[in-house]
Amino acid sequence: MTEYSYLIYFTDPYGVGKSQYVVANEVGLTNVPKNTLKDYDRLITFDVHTLVDDLRINKGSLPAELIDISDALRLNAAVSRSDGGEKVWGFWRNIKPHFKNQASWKILSGVYSVLDPIPESSDLPALLSEFVVALGLLWNDTKDKLELNGELARFLDVEVPVAQIFYYR
C-alpha cells in the first residue's frame, strides 16, 4: 500500500512572502520552506492552481508530483461546471463531513476563502492535525470511488502526469 504525504498551505493574501507550507505524513506535521518542496516525490493537496501561483510569486519550488484532490472529485462527480458541477465537486463541501469538529472546518474554510485571518500559532497545530485527518479520509474515499468506477488508473497514470505539465509551465 502506498503511503501518501499531504501538503497544506496558507497563501499570503498581502503578497509579502508570509505564505506557509506544511507537509503531513507518517512522521507528523512539518513546516517546510518554500524551496524544499522540490525534495518531496508526491504530495496530495487541493486547489493546486492557487498553490502554484503562490509558489511562483514567492519563488518557491514544486514537488516532483502534485495530486490535486479537487481534480479527483471532479472526475468522480461526472458533472460539468455548466450543469452545476461546482456544487457537487467543491473541495470544501466534500471535506466538511470528514471533520470531527465542524467549527474547525468553518475556521479553515474561512481562511481559504480569505474571509478570516490565519489562526494564532497556538491554535494552528490542532487545526492542522484535524485538517490532515479530514484530507486523508477524503482522499481515501475519493480514491476508492475512482477505483470502483474504474477511473483510478486513468487518474493516476494520465490525468496527474498531464496536470504536472501545466503546473510547470
Rank of each mutant, 00 (worst) to 15 (best):
K100A: 10
V27N: 11
L148P: 01
I8H: 10
F131D: 11
A24N: 02
E3Y: 01
H49Y: 12
L124R: 07
P119F: 03
G15S: 11
D68P: 06
A163P: 09
F99W: 12
R56Q: 14
W105E: 12
S121P: 00
G84S: 09
L108F: 15
V158I: 15
T36I: 11
L75H: 00
R56L: 12
N76P: 01
L138S: 03
N76M: 09
Y14S: 04
D83A: 12
V52M: 06
N58V: 13
L137P: 00
G90W: 01
E151V: 07
L148R: 10
G28S: 06
K96Y: 11
E120W: 08
L124W: 10
I8S: 08
N35M: 06
M1G: 02
N58P: 01
E159G: 00
Y9V: 09
Y167V: 07
D68A: 03
V133W: 02
R154E: 13
I8Q: 08
S109C: 05
L55E: 10
V88M: 13
T11S: 09
G84C: 12
V48T: 10
V114F: 15
L73Q: 12
L55G: 05
P161I: 13
G15H: 12
G90P: 08
K87E: 15
N25F: 02
V27F: 14
N76R: 06
G136C: 00
L128I: 14
D47T: 08
L138V: 03
D53M: 07
S5F: 01
P63Y: 09
L137H: 06
T30G: 01
F131C: 05
I107C: 04
D83M: 11
S113F: 08
R169K: 01
W92M: 06
Y9G: 03
D123W: 05
V22M: 09
L127N: 00
S113Y: 05
N25V: 07
N31F: 10
S61C: 05
P161D: 14
N94F: 07
W105G: 04
A64V: 14
Y40M: 11
D116R: 15
P119C: 05
D116K: 15
R42I: 03
A72D: 08
P161E: 15
G60A: 09
F99N: 05
A64G: 05
K18R: 11
V111T: 14
S80K: 01
P119N: 03
I107T: 15
Y167T: 10
L156T: 13
P13T: 15
H98A: 13
Y14H: 13
N149W: 02
I69F: 02
L29C: 00
S80Y: 15
T36P: 01
K145W: 02
V27T: 09
V160C: 06
Y6A: 02
T11M: 15
P97S: 06
F46L: 06
W89N: 10
V16G: 03
V22F: 14
W92Q: 03
L66C: 09
A134P: 14
D144P: 00
G28H: 08
L43W: 04
D53N: 14
M1P: 01
V88F: 10
K96S: 10
I44P: 00
R56H: 06
R154G: 03
L138Q: 01
N140E: 09
N31G: 02
S109G: 01
E26F: 04
N101Y: 15
D144C: 00
Q164N: 14
D12S: 08
E86V: 07
